[in-house]
């Protein structure tokens, strides 16, 4: 039991959780504050993951230059997606982003791209430069049921440092006059235009900044593991949206807590079910079905949440009352 609980609790601070939280903060800026429907956050994460890992593996760059390449690629991607769509109605951005994410995934996973992107196998072993910066002495660090290596601790610490940095950045931005313009655009962009603001430029800035958050999330996502093209499908984007709506779309902290709850819940339900199946308490399921069932349970939990608390955990209920 301790192990199950420990497992679930460990998902509160895993680097993966941090990566999802950061990607969700990105779409909080896009959707919650600017009203941009970005249904392709996966592409910004993929750009981060591939931009970074290809720079290291294929071009032999160091850690920081590789991060720089990912950042430049992310900005380029934001412009590529934004220039044709941001003058149009918001649904066009949604269509283009979701398509771009799929196109990107198919391109990197083709066998002809294998020498660069690793094709369907993806890439691994590009994190040496990152772990070389680890100041934590080599060894095993045991707390309660957990057993961390120095590299695990380093990845956790860096991940949450990055998340905190961007969360604070966004909190400052949305409380500034810049954030006021952004929120105005969410409400009615023609009104904001009539007040002398360059709406197109603001939407582009929002797309770039939120996309950069997705890109850093992509780097955090792959640093402790490997790059798998299959990870960057539409499900990734929808998990991030789930996390966003769980925590509350127009909040910063909501994305972080949403990611923690999402992953802990997933781990807890999965572990509980599979233990139940193992010791014979649950007889109507097989071990293979558990993986699918837990997503169903999480889905039901989210449906209940949307019905009974549509503003998300941290959302302002007042904002919904008026939304006639």
């Amino acid at each position: 039991m301790d192990l199950i609980l420990g497992n679930a609790i460990s998902w509160l601070f895993q680097p993966i959780t941090a990566a999802y939280a950061l990607a969700a903060i990105g779409i909080a800026l896009h959707f919650g504050f600017t009203g941009l429907l970005n249904f392709g956050q996966a592409v910004f994460m993929a750009v981060g993951a591939y931009g970074f890992s290809i720079s290291v593996k294929f071009f032999g760059l160091g850690f920081w230059p590789a991060v720089g390449v990912a950042v430049i690629a992310s900005i380029a991607m934001a412009f590529l997606l934004g220039i044709p769509t941001l003058r149009l109605r918001s649904d066009y951005l949604a269509i283009v982003t979701i398509a771009a994410a799929e196109v990107f995934r198919f391109i990197v996973s083709t066998t002809s791209a294998q020498p660069v992107t690793g094709g369907p196998q993806g890439l691994n072993q590009y994190s040496e430069g990152f772990y070389a910066m680890n100041p934590i002495p080599v060894g095993h660090y045991k707390f309660w049921v957990w057993d961390f290596k120095q590299d695990d601790l380093f990845a956790i610490a860096v991940s949450w440092l990055v998340v905190t940095f961007f969360a604070v950045l966004l909190a400052i931005l949305i409380r500034s006059p810049w954030g006021r313009v952004i929120k105005g655009i969410r409400e009615d962009e023609d009104a904001v235009r009539s007040l002398g603001k360059n709406v197109y430029s603001y939407k582009m800035q929002s797309l770039v900044v939120g996309g950069l958050m997705g890109t850093f999330a992509g780097i955090l996502f792959v640093l402790p593991t490997s790059v798998q093209p299959g990870n960057y499908g539409t499900t990734l984007t929808f998990y991030i949206w789930t996390i966003l709506l769980l925590g509350g779309a127009s909040t910063v902290i909501g994305s972080i807590v949403g990611a923690m709850i999402f992953w802990s819940l997933l781990s807890l339900t999965g572990d509980l079910l599979s233990t139940g199946v193992d010791n014979g308490t649950i007889t109507f399921l097989t071990q293979n079905q558990v993986g699918a069932i837990r997503f169903m349970l999480v889905g039901v939990a989210l449906m209940l949440l949307v019905i009974f608390r549509p503003q998300g955990i941290f959302g302002n209920k007042k904002e919904l009352y008026f939304n006639a």
């Binding site: 931005l173 006059p177 006021r180 409400e187 009615d188 009539s194 002398g196």
Partner: peptide, 27 residues
């Protein structure tokens, strides 16, 4: 076109011109 989910005061402030804080970096 009132901007519904922001306050009346924020609506008003939005009308002001040449607020340097409306630039991303200076914000």
């Amino acid at each position: 076109k009132s901007l519904n989910m922001i306050t009346v005061m924020e609506n008003m402030r939005l009308g002001a011109q040449k607020q340097p804080g409306e630039s991303l970096l200076r914000a």
